[in-house]
Amino acid sequence: MSELVLEVRNLSLAYGATLAVKSISFEAFEDEILAIVGPNGAGKSTLLEAVAGLHMAREGSIAFKGRSLTGTSVFRRRLMGIVLVPQDENIFPGMTVRENLEMGAFRTRRGNVKQKLQYVFDLFPRLKERERQMANTLSGGERRMLAIGMGVTGEAQLYLIDEPSVGLAPRIVTKVLESLKTLQRDTARPIVVAEQNTKVLHVAQRLLGMEAGERRFFKSVGSLSQERLKELYLGLCEREREA
């Protein structure tokens, strides 16, 4: 069994009086892509942001490589190697593509920055073409690539990527999700990705199904038939529609 990187235990998160995440437990190991799936409002983003330190836990705990993260700031968690790619407002609009990537690499050892930038440009050649362009002039797909690229230039022990495909054209969705696979293979770091698109089934090893802040299932993709997976996945959306 590979090494345990992230361990979330009975975590509850709230916005004021509203519980957004209700007693969720899961863990992520070295060498895996774990997809958190579920409809809008399931609490996926809140959960990822809590791991990055943007929300305080109401109850429960988060441990990273055996160390409790309670009371650890966003900044400290980033220094420990927890890299979040947020879903929205995930670029610096008034900076060039290259400057954005440099900011993503702000805590990367100086000697490695060049190589990291090159890696991003190989992963997303489009960004190389747009290198000197202001980030707020990019298309939606390019922005998403830039946001992921900013995560990739960081020296991560754990990637948290929030809905990389939302709002993108189908062809680009495939490309973006495939890039996660490449990233995982090349870095051997775990990726926890929140996603609604069913294409994530092709890249993830395990699925955490969430709905209305609660855990519905936590299963290994390999152990299930594609049909059963789709059933589980679509079940989440069906229940939402009935509600």
């Binding site: 900076m95 900011m103 805590r107």
Partner: peptide
Amino acid sequence: RVGKSWRATSQNLRLAKVVGIN
């Protein structure tokens, strides 16, 4: 580098924290 991190902070505070800018 430091000056760019100031611009970044003024443009998107939350993201600046997320990428590890003090």
